[in-house]
Amino acid sequence: MEDLKKIISGCASGKKRAQEQLYQLFAPKMFGVCLRYAKDSTEAEDNLQEGFIKVFQNIGSFRHEGSFEGWIRRIMVNVSLEKFRKQHVLHPVEDVSIYEGQNVSDDILAGISAKELIAEIQQLPPRYRMVFNLFVIEGMNHQEISEEMKITVGTSKSNLARAREILKRRVKELYGDIEKTSNYTAGWVKN
């Protein structure tokens, strides 16, 4: 912890060595964050780069009050959202009240690697991807998401529902068959 403080203050005074250390510490995890928000790894790399530039530029304003990882992660999410806002004008709101419920067992999910799951998330339409990430992973509620993304709460909800459905269908299509024989019944039992 002391080390991290030292690294942070080194970065604040513009020391290259400290910047590199900080990058080594956080880049893999933050790349994971960026990958979830981006449509592909190139966009994620861009966002990671842009995010770290922002981190180094603003690290002097970090007051050691909250979690540093939370702070840096917030910057990455913000960069991703900013990119989304620039790239995507608002899509017309779809009515998603009637989506057929897909049953996906936990066990199917358990059999999928994080990488595969991220690949599926990246395939989601941009706004669904954003809402899904903010709600499921960052733990924001719909009110917060609606403010963050300048959409209505209803849109946020429907986007999330739609994202879930698409993901479930995709997961089922791609991985469900393999797991069917061994885990399908177990899944039913569980639920």
Partner: peptide, 8 residues
């Protein structure tokens, strides 16, 4: 996904 990390 929360703890997921990948080397850039």
């Amino acid at each position: 996904l929360d703890g997921f990390s990948a080397a850039p």
